[in-house]
Simulated scan of single mutants.
Amino acid sequence: MRTLPDRIRHAISFEVIGLLLVTPLGALAFHMPLDDIGVVTVVSATIATGWNFFYNVGFDMALKRLTGSTQKSWWARVWHAVLFEAGLLIVLVPFIAWYLQASLWQALVMDVSFSVFYVVYAYAFNLAYDWLFPLPEWAAEAEERAG
């Protein structure tokens, strides 16, 4: 399982890279000022960072209990990303509506758009992160399976 420093590096790098991508894309897509979208994305990222840490710990614990390993299959990665974004949706829609003085429907459309981006981004980011920072136990598990 990942260490605390590794989980912190994961959460922070995920959010920083995501912000650098989603803020200008959101401003362009929704025809809103960069600073308004910037506030929404920074607040959202701050909330998401905390959620990311606790969610990943819980997901890995559940995965280890169910499969005996924290190594994620393709389907586990898909569920990991989708469930993460669903949890954020519940919290962020009311905030977006309030801050941008938009209807809940408009906020939902915006947040779903951001979520679709982040589902794809989360899948790609986590795949790259696991490739860059593999756990030693995965090599031993692969040797065991090859056996």
Score class of each variant (00 low, 15 high):
Leu92Phe: 15
Gln71Tyr: 09
Trp51Val: 12
Thr67Glu: 13
Ala62Leu: 11
Ser69Gly: 01
Trp105Gln: 10
Ala142Glu: 09
Trp75Val: 14
Val109Gly: 04
Ala146Met: 11
Ala107Trp: 14
Thr70Pro: 02
His80Val: 00
Ala139Asn: 06
Leu108Phe: 15
Trp79Ser: 12
Thr46Arg: 02
Ser44Met: 09
Ala76Thr: 00
Tyr99Asn: 06
Ser103Gln: 00
Gly18Cys: 05
Val39Tyr: 04
Pro33Trp: 02
Gly38Met: 11
Phe114Asn: 04
Tyr129Cys: 03
Gln106Met: 12
Asp35Val: 04
Val91Met: 12
Pro24Thr: 08
Glu137Gly: 07
Ile12Asp: 00
Leu4Arg: 14
Arg2Thr: 09
Ala146Asp: 05
Leu135Thr: 04
Ala107Val: 01
Phe14Arg: 00
Val57Met: 02
Ala45Glu: 00
Leu20Lys: 07
Pro136Glu: 09
Arg9Ala: 14
Leu66Arg: 10
Arg77Asp: 08
Ser113Arg: 04
Leu89Asn: 14
Ala122Arg: 08
His80Arg: 01
Trp131Gln: 15
Thr23Val: 13
Val116Glu: 08
Trp131Phe: 10
Glu143Asp: 14
Leu4Glu: 14
Leu83Ile: 12
His80Trp: 08
Gly147Cys: 00
Leu4Ser: 15
Ser113Ala: 10
Thr67Arg: 14
Trp98Thr: 03
Glu15Lys: 07
Ala45Tyr: 02
Asp36His: 15
Leu20Cys: 12
Leu127Glu: 15
Ala107Gly: 13
Gln71Phe: 13
Ile17Trp: 03
Leu135Lys: 03
Thr70Gln: 05
Tyr118Thr: 04
Leu89Lys: 09
Met32Cys: 01
Glu143Thr: 04
Ala27Arg: 05
Leu19Tyr: 07
Thr3His: 08
Glu141Lys: 02
Leu34His: 01
Leu92Glu: 10
Pro24His: 11
Asn126Arg: 01
Ile37Tyr: 00
Ala97Asn: 01
Ala128Pro: 05
Leu19Gly: 07
Leu89Thr: 06
Arg145Ile: 03
Val93Glu: 00
Asp60Thr: 10
Phe133Ile: 01
Asp35Tyr: 15
Gln101Leu: 08
Leu127Thr: 12
Arg9Phe: 09
Leu100Gly: 06
Gly147Gln: 13
Met32Tyr: 00
Phe117Asp: 08
Asn52Trp: 13
Trp138Lys: 00
Leu127Asp: 13
Ile90Cys: 12
Ser69Ala: 00
Phe84Ile: 02
Val22Ile: 12
Ile12Pro: 04
Tyr118Asn: 13
Phe59His: 06
Ala146Gly: 12
Asn52Leu: 04
Lys64Ile: 11
Arg2Gly: 03
Tyr118Asp: 08
Arg9His: 06
Val78Asp: 02
Ser13Leu: 14
Leu104His: 15
Trp79Arg: 11
Thr23Ser: 07
Ser103Cys: 00
Asn126Ala: 05
Phe133Lys: 12
Val120Arg: 01
Leu83Arg: 02
Met110Gln: 11
Thr70Phe: 05
Ala48Pro: 05
Lys64Asp: 14
Ile37Gln: 06
Val39Ser: 10
Leu89Glu: 09
Ala48Thr: 01
Leu89Arg: 12
Glu144Trp: 05
Asp35Gly: 03
Ala124Trp: 02
Ala29Trp: 08
Val42Met: 13
Glu15Ala: 14
Gly58Met: 08
Thr46Leu: 10
Val109Glu: 12
Thr46Asn: 07
Gln106Trp: 15
Pro33Gln: 13
Ala107Cys: 01
Val109Tyr: 11
Val22Ala: 00
Ile12Val: 13
Asn52Asp: 07
Pro134Met: 06
Asp36Gln: 15
Leu127Pro: 02
